[in-house]
Amino acid sequence: MTKPPKNALRTRIVNNIPLAIMCLPAAIYMFCFCYMPMFGVVIAFKDYNYVDGILGSPWVGFEHFKFFFESNEAALLLRNTILYNVLFILLGTFLKVLVAILLYEITSRVALKAYQTSIILPNFISWVLVAYIGYALFSSETGMLNAILNNLGKQDIQWYSEPKYWPYILTIFEMWKGVGMGCIIYYAALMAVDKSLYEAAEIDGANRFKQITSISIPTILPTICILLIMSVGGILGGDFGLFFQLPRNSGALYPVTDVISTYVYRGLTSGEMSSTAAIGLFQNAVGLVLTLGTNLFVKKVNPENAMF
């Protein structure tokens, strides 16, 4: 009953031509803008110059890596990047879960909509606009905070040149921008909980707090785990806009605001291509290892929660 195999193969190929053409734009794009830069990382092991290009520039081996890790900057950048990311992940998760649980208590549709719309607004604006808000608050001559300090009879603070305030400022703005949107995913998970569980608990005499700790939190625990795992891979990444736009690239603040991403960007503007490409490669390689590693770990412990 089956057709001759050769003919079937031909039909199959002919049928697949339109499908292949449909994939072509995406495939070519990925080749040019994802795969070619992947091979472009060889410049991290070369001394890149424009005249010789990527292929012609001389090899230097691990020179750039050695230079970076022996410099004082490496320790500072790694400390800033990792500490900020760990802080943002932990504090962010805590606040998002908290807001989601509180949001779940709101039963009025109108109030719910109003609150949701306002708290996710900061997520949808660009970091440039956030920098304007920051400038309105912190500008040393005209900023609102200094005006308030003056009214209280206190001295002005030069916000953009005083590093000690910035860990707090960065954390507050990162939370301000991300928590409202981030809580929605936990809120959606809470909405999936069977309402009769709460009713049953209430009949058994559990108060609202008890219901939250023994029903709400256990149900969103898998979601919390998945999102935590997914964020581990980005521990050397970081929100470029937060660290670059908000402090307005102020050099005096680098000790507390400089992270790998901003350092790499400055390498691009100063033309130090090879040495910063090496740092970028290090950042991406660590990210890849962490992502694959955590996924492997989760797969062993609980295959349900693995990403792939």
Binding site: P37, M38, Y48, I54, T276, A277, N284
Partner: peptide, 10 residues
């Protein structure tokens, strides 16, 4: 990922 710099050069 290739990263910012190799991407920029390409």
């Amino acid at each position: 990922h290739g990263g910012l710099i190799p991407g920029y050069i390409i």
